[in-house]
Amino acid sequence: MWLACGCIFLLVSVVVGISVGSLSIPFHSSMNVLWTAVWPKEMPADISPTHAAIILDIRLPRVLLAALVGASLALAGAAFQGLLKNPLADPYTLGVSSGSALGAVIVLFFGLSLPLLGSFTLPVISIFSGFLTLLGLLGFVRFIEKTLSTETIILAGIIVSSFLGSLISLVIALTGDELRQIISWLMGSVSMRGWDYIWLILPFFIVGAVLLFANRKELNALVFGEETAKTLGVDTDKRRIIILAGASLLTGAAVSVSGTIGFVGLVVPHLVRLLVGPNHQLLLPMSMFAGSGFLVLTDLAARTIIAPTELPIGVITAVIGAPVFGMLLFQQRRTKTR
């Protein structure tokens, strides 16, 4: 039932995202165009070729990219929160996004292109540096205290984030040219990316999502702590690495195509959890649907609020996300001291 709602929410968001913009296209036209694209047949006569072109070449890739990025971030967030037993965890607060971004910026800066990887160099490096950041963070926290407590992880995440952020700034300062481009990339955007980016993110998204879905029950067990999960028969060492890898894969893929878009991974799983409960069998798919729909709508807002100027999408998610983050922290503190 919930899953159906999620699907419908996503579809509606996509249709709305495609139809609304500087040039409004009636819903039925965009539906028709979509339908023809999926099910090849004659384009109905009442749809102008311009509309079709706008939809298929500009808006659809943009909306799909937003959907994929949103889904990736929300899934990664849900997985991090479950694994770390901590509703405040997400790729952004943990510094994984920053790690991925640093990797991406370095690739851009040096114009790197690894053999065999070709155009996949950027996402691969980005994913890898995100994963390394995460391992580094968890190693650091474990070094401070064995229990991996909520507060320490968040604090360490902030330290890591700002450290990596300053490294990124350093790289940008060295760049000189293209300053504006990199900065706007960093603030997060899904505009003018085209289909290439979708094909770039899609394989990573699929692998990452499959890894996480395959571990939905293990995530439920891990919420009760590693020790307990073990007694329930979960091979915790292996599963934890798989989950971290899956979540880093999703984060890195999302960052590599859209820059750092914060708080989606925090807010969406949290709200979804309020709706459907903490069971990851439902939480993961619902977070995916809600995250993609949410980012499609956010992107829509980013490009229409002060059209024709576009806001960076990361600004909007941060404007929504930061207060929610604050609220969560407040609530958690209060329940703890009670």
């Binding site: 479950g82 037993k85 901590n86 509703p87 909520t150 029950k217 293990e218 439920n220 067990a221 919420v223 009760f224 329930l232 028969g233 979960v234 959890r273 409960g277 903490p278 069971n279």
Partner: peptide, 16 residues
């Protein structure tokens, strides 16, 4: 536990 599982969900984990 950080998140609010229902009693049944907790017990279902035993079938894992």
């Amino acid at each position: 536990v950080a998140f609010s599982y229902t009693v049944r969900q907790v017990v279902e984990l035993g079938r894992y």
